[in-house]
Amino acid sequence: MGFAAFPGEGSHHCSFGLAIHAEESQQWQWHDFCKTQYASNPEKGGLANFVRCHQRVLALLDLCEELSILSSASDPSGYRDHRNLEQLVAYVCDANVFTAAAIGCLKDGLETRGYSAEAPILERADFEHLEAQGRLQTPPPASAN
């Protein structure tokens, strides 16, 4: 049993529900994800749209938690824990720069071999600017593990 929710333009849909996956199990389970990053595309409404979409998803998570039907959820931005809009916006801006640089490298490599790439970040009018900004940044240090 469940439902799908569409947080807004540019965002992935998210689904919520309860399901038993094994006959012997009486534990209800559900797993899904919702990527709101691409709602920050200026042509989809920009940062204000992203914030609205992200907050809508978290409002649903908060409600599920209140109803005691949420066992866990993660938010890579950390916003679910800190609820700081400045940190959320900084996170998505950094994510857009990183994603543009990574997808740009992949796209360039594929095109030299006669292939093409498709990704929501490529739809942004400012993609090349974000990509260039990302390529100028120093990558994080490699993990010691």
Rank of each mutant, 00 (worst) to 15 (best):
F50N: 09
E131Q: 12
F33T: 14
S11T: 13
S71V: 06
N49Y: 07
F50M: 11
P76A: 07
R80P: 00
E23Q: 07
H21A: 04
F6H: 12
A22R: 15
A144F: 08
D75N: 10
L70R: 00
N145G: 14
E24I: 12
H82Y: 02
G104M: 02
Y91I: 02
P42C: 09
L85K: 15
C53Y: 15
P7D: 04
E131T: 00
G45P: 13
I69Q: 02
S11Y: 10
P140T: 09
W28K: 04
P141K: 06
A119Q: 11
E123V: 00
Q87G: 02
K107D: 09
Q133W: 06
K107N: 10
P76F: 00
A22V: 08
H129I: 11
Y91R: 07
N49G: 04
A73S: 11
L136T: 01
D81N: 06
A102Q: 09
A95Q: 13
N84I: 03
T36P: 01
H129S: 13
L47G: 08
A19F: 01
I69K: 00
E128A: 15
L67G: 04
F127N: 07
C93Y: 05
L47S: 06
K44M: 05
L63F: 08
F98N: 09
N84D: 03
A59G: 12
E65K: 07
N145Y: 15
G2D: 01
M1A: 05
L110T: 02
A48S: 14
S71M: 08
C105S: 12
T112C: 09
P42H: 08
P120H: 09
L136S: 10
L58S: 06
L106I: 07
C14R: 00
E131H: 06
Q133Y: 04
T112I: 10
I20Y: 04
G134W: 01
S40K: 03
R124S: 15
G8I: 14
S15N: 03
Y79K: 07
Q87D: 03
S72E: 12
A19E: 05
E43C: 15
L130Y: 11
M1F: 05
N84A: 04
S74L: 01
G8E: 11
W30R: 06
D81E: 07
I69D: 00
S68V: 08
T99P: 03
T36H: 01
T99E: 04
E65Q: 08
L85E: 15
E86Y: 02
I69F: 06
S11I: 13
S68K: 15
E65V: 00
E66I: 03
R56S: 09
E111Y: 00
